[in-house]
């Protein structure tokens, strides 16, 4: 198919065909990863900068690995600045990127909309690696890829995202991606974790983990940020675990098999029972492997290279 997008800012607005194209491309790169020498020359000569304005380990490593597997030249820029200075830094950094003739930028930033802002400052392709509470599209894609590996078509599958939906960019990217592929999405968590007017997304909303499990085929369990307790959004981890913790006992009561995803890092024993995270229910490690493949696909498709070859 023709793939004309220049930037990956979010999954909102992506069609089923576009997402499937990215996931199919990711599958072919996944095959590369299983070779004895897991490296291809696809992005040789392309320069990519990884701009991380927020602490990140797994996403950054996953992107770096994807870039290395594609033979791109990469530069890493990690900083964590005070919120007041953030704006100036981003704009100045953008100017530097422009001057250094960089082809792609992978950006993680604490402010929603920062990747979009960057598209207005530079010519490079922008890949969003997480912006504030807005979107984390490659996480959404790797979750979709993992579920497709297991189920094939996601049409009609029921996926419940459990946890702090209001503050989660993973939740937003999952909602858009899952809905584009025809899945039904539910949200589960205390009402203080639900964004205002979440029903506008056309999602089911559960305040009982038992009801959510009863309804779902998949639980995508989000990490509980312990600092939300200080902000008064939930009383204690004990209370959270009691009403929303995902446990083997709860899953065994379910009428059907339940698949567990978790974007990591896991608070073992808080949002999910420790043993369950490593159990047959869990696809958590598949998510990590797929993360590299999906990011390779994203880097390739949004590099414009795909288009150049089509044109030629």
């Amino acid at each position: 198919m023709e793939f004309n997008r220049k930037h990956l800012l979010g999954l909102e607005g992506f069609s089923r065909e576009e997402i499937i194209h990215i996931l199919d491309t990711a599958n072919s790169f996944k095959e590369v990863l299983s070779r004895p020498i897991p490296k291809v020359p696809t992005l040789r000569g392309k320069t990519i900068v990884n701009l991380f304005f927020e602490a990140s380990t797994r996403t950054r490593i996953s992107f770096e690995l994807a870039q290395k597997r594609l033979s791109a030249d990469t530069v890493n820029f990690a900083t964590s600045t005070s919120s007041v200075k953030k704006g100036e830094t981003l704009r100045d950094t953008a100017r530097n990127i422009e001057a250094m003739k960089i082809d792609m930028v992978v950006i993680r930033h604490g402010a929603a909309g920062a990747p979009l802002f960057l598209t207005q400052c530079v010519d490079a392709s922008i890949i969003n690696a997480g912006d504030g509470q807005h979107e984390h599209p490659t996480q959404g894609l790797l979750d979709l890829m993992t579920l497709r590996d297991k189920f094939g078509d996601l049409q009609g599958k029921k996926v419940v995202i459990v946890g702090d939906i209001a503050h989660s960019r993973v939740a937003r990217s999952n909602i858009y991606g899952l809905q584009a592929l025809g899945a039904q999405v539910g949200l589960c968590g205390p009402s203080t974790f639900m964004p205002y007017q979440a029903e506008h997304w056309g999602t089911e909303i559960f305040h009982s983990i038992e009801e959510a499990i009863e309804w779902s085929d998949v639980l995508n369990v989000l990490r509980i940020q312990l600092e939300r307790q200080e902000k008064g959004l939930f009383p204690s981890t004990r209370e959270y675990r009691r009403f929303f913790g995902v446990t083997r006992e709860r899953l065994e009561h379910a009428k059907r098999d339940i698949t567990i995803l978790h974007p990591g890092p896991i608070n073992r024993g808080v949002e999910i029972e420790s043993e369950l995270a490593d159990s047959e229910f869990s696809l958590i490690l598949d998510q990590v492997t797929n993360g590299v493949a999906v990011r390779m696909a994203a880097l390739y498709l949004f590099s414009g290279l795909n288009k150049e070859t089509t044109d030629a």
């Binding site: 205002y196 979440a198 506008h200």
Partner: peptide, 15 residues
């Protein structure tokens, strides 16, 4: 403004 729009944009809302 805290609304369906702030929810979609992932921006903290002022109710």
């Amino acid at each position: 403004n805290e609304s369906a729009v702030s929810t979609r944009l992932g921006l903290p809302g002022i109710p």
